[in-house]
């Protein structure tokens, strides 16, 4: 077996339809909960002056803000599509509607002078899943077709590979930004310390919740060099996660710990990676869920 074949077997393992379905359910569920929990952040912009409108991404199609009713309507459609796509109901319509709606609603939220960087990967994953045959299993569509269990097929492998690539590329991009803007000197920890200090200062002065742990640690400069090396190391090493298995597990735990560190030191919550959903595509996630889902299907059927 050639080295390329060995690599391909690790990067593109046999993928059953249930894996893609499990990812659809996980990402869709996350999206639905996210939308339900933040209606005012995602649909109400009345507190902003029209002059504060600074469209980004697809919202650059607009010259001026939408009327409030249109924001609420788009939010409602996206929420309904998200729930339908999660359940795999008329996925050919609900999947793209969900992904495009999520892209619009989150882009619109980011179009008021501040880019948040917390939903980027969620939106990319939703767009990939919307293009994929993610409702061939564990879906209302599959039930209504009375579909028989399907075998692993490469048509289920490419969307998982695309999600994995987007995941590792987002961490690699963060490392490239550090090296491009500051250089290897970023690993000294001075920049990281300054960022944590700045973040806490800004939150205190703007009357918001800050991390007292981060503020305390700023007084101990020696601690930031190891943090910086570890952060940069895990970001640069992200592509090894594509090999799957134990390597992917170790890298995912490292990346997850990085986000936990950001939460503890800066009080910034990145829900998509911290709930583990961002890393799910690296693993045979369907095995963890299959008993539960199949048990439910038997009970209903």
């Amino acid at each position: 077996m050639s080295a390329l074949s060995t690599l391909e077997r690790r990067v593109f393992p046999d993928t059953p339809p249930a894996r893609l379905a499990a990812l659809r359910v996980l990402v869709g569920l996350f999206s639905t909960i996210y939308l339900v929990s933040r209606p005012t952040d995602l649909a109400f912009f009345g507190q902003f002056a029209r002059s504060a409108f600074a469209p980004v991404g697809v919202v650059q199609l607009l010259a001026r803000p939408l009327p409030s009713a249109a924001c609420w309507a788009l939010y409602g459609i996206t929420l309904a599509a998200s729930a339908a796509a999660t359940a795999g109901y008329r996925y050919r319509v609900s999947g793209p509607l969900w992904a495009l709606g999520l892209l619009w609603v989150t882009s619109y939220r980011n179009s008021w002078g501040m880019l948040f960087h917390t939903e980027n990967l969620l939106v990319v994953d939703a767009l990939i899943l919307a293009l994929a045959p993610a409702s061939d299993a564990w879906s209302l569509d599959a039930r209504s077709r009375d579909a028989k269990p399907l075998d692993p097929n490469p048509k289920y492998a490419w969307p998982v590979a695309a999600m994995n690539a987007a995941l590792v590329a987002s961490y690699l991009a963060a490392a490239i930004a550090k090296l491009r803007l500051v250089g290897w000197g970023w690993a000294s920890g001075d920049e990281l310390r300054a960022h944590i200090a700045f973040d806490a200062l800004r939150k205190i002065e703007l009357g918001s919740m800050h991390s007292s742990i981060g503020a305390e640690l700023v007084r101990h400069p020696w601690i930031f060099a190891p943090f910086a090396w570890l952060s940069l190391g895990f970001e640069l090493a992200a592509p090894v996660a594509l090999l799957g298995g134990r390597i992917a597990l170790i890298w995912s735990l490292g990346a997850w710990t990085f986000h936990l560190g950001v939460l503890l030191l800066m009080a910034i919550f990145f829900p998509y990676p911290l709930t583990g959903v961002a890393f799910a595509s690296l693993f045979p996630i369907e095995r963890a869920f299959s008993r539960w889902f199949e048990g439910k299907q038997r009970a209903v059927g």
Partner: peptide
């Protein structure tokens, strides 16, 4: 996903992830 990291402009959902770098 990587392409924006070579540019200077941040956007959404494709970003150059400047938040802990600059």
């Amino acid at each position: 996903v990587l392409l924006p990291s070579l540019g200077k402009t941040d956007s959404f959902p494709l970003s150059n992830y400047p938040m802990f770098a600059a």
